[in-house]
Amino acid sequence: MWRLSALLLISLPLSLQAGEIWITNEKDDTISVIDTDTLEVTRTIATGERPRGITFSKDFTRAYVCASDSDAVQVIDVQSGDILNDLPSGEDPEQFVLHPDDRHLWIANEDDAIATVVDVQTHKVVAQINVGIEPEGMAVSPDGKTVVSTSETTSMAHWIDTESHEIYANSLVDARPRHAVFTSDGAQLWVSSEIGGTVSVFDTADQSLITKIRFEITGVHPDLIQPVGFEFTADGTRAFVALGPANHIAVVDTATFEVTDYLLVGRRVWHMAFSPDHSKLFTTNGVSGDVTVIDVATLTPIKSIKTGRYPWGAAMRP
């Protein structure tokens, strides 16, 4: 008994302070777990084939991972790293989003032009919704009433009512939309277009286009500036946008929609996650096979961390 409490005392402060970034390695079928304080890879966890999208349950006890080529979403115990079970996901799940109810995963099935809704408690498919070709980005509004699915080849954002599972609006965007996120107040939806080279900002109330954000880097041809993943800071004042083969992260002022900085990272940057205190940003660099750590206050890259082959998704666990 005495021994037990001593153990608890030792382990508790550690787990409170040190957050983790979980990185999916698409070509290694693993997850690299990075400690946000030491900036080292502390664990490597085996997954199914071609892991891409990753997110956590609200209590951070389980990780959900899209194992695209295993046609499954895998549920991982975060302590042991063991795969608890597979969820039926439809074919080729690429990205997904967990509904605020902590119970329904909305999954993009890239090869099937379908979005699948899975109940993580019953392990049952609740609904499948026909969307455009190569669905990828999935976003849920903070009130949980709307899920948006973007389809790459159809170049559209589909607005889906989460109660009726019906599409109630479709918004054309520039070519090859990859990622979508609602602002934290739910007023705007941002959608990145990889081949179009833009980020479209929509008014959630009427799905009208507010603006299109464009990017420009000296010495990089516009065709190679390809926005993919992006995240907002906790205070919502800035967005960090990964520009793919341009090897840069753009920093966008969310009030003016102006790009204020471009930060050089590794090659073919895909997605990103913040440390628990939002002081550091971790970007996945697919081609260089590493993660760049950016100090958010000074906007400077401070370290590259070698991961597995082709790091893709990123998610934070406090």
Partner: peptide, 10 residues
Amino acid sequence: LENATTGRFL
């Protein structure tokens, strides 16, 4: 087929 899928929404 791909045009028709997009066309369904438009």
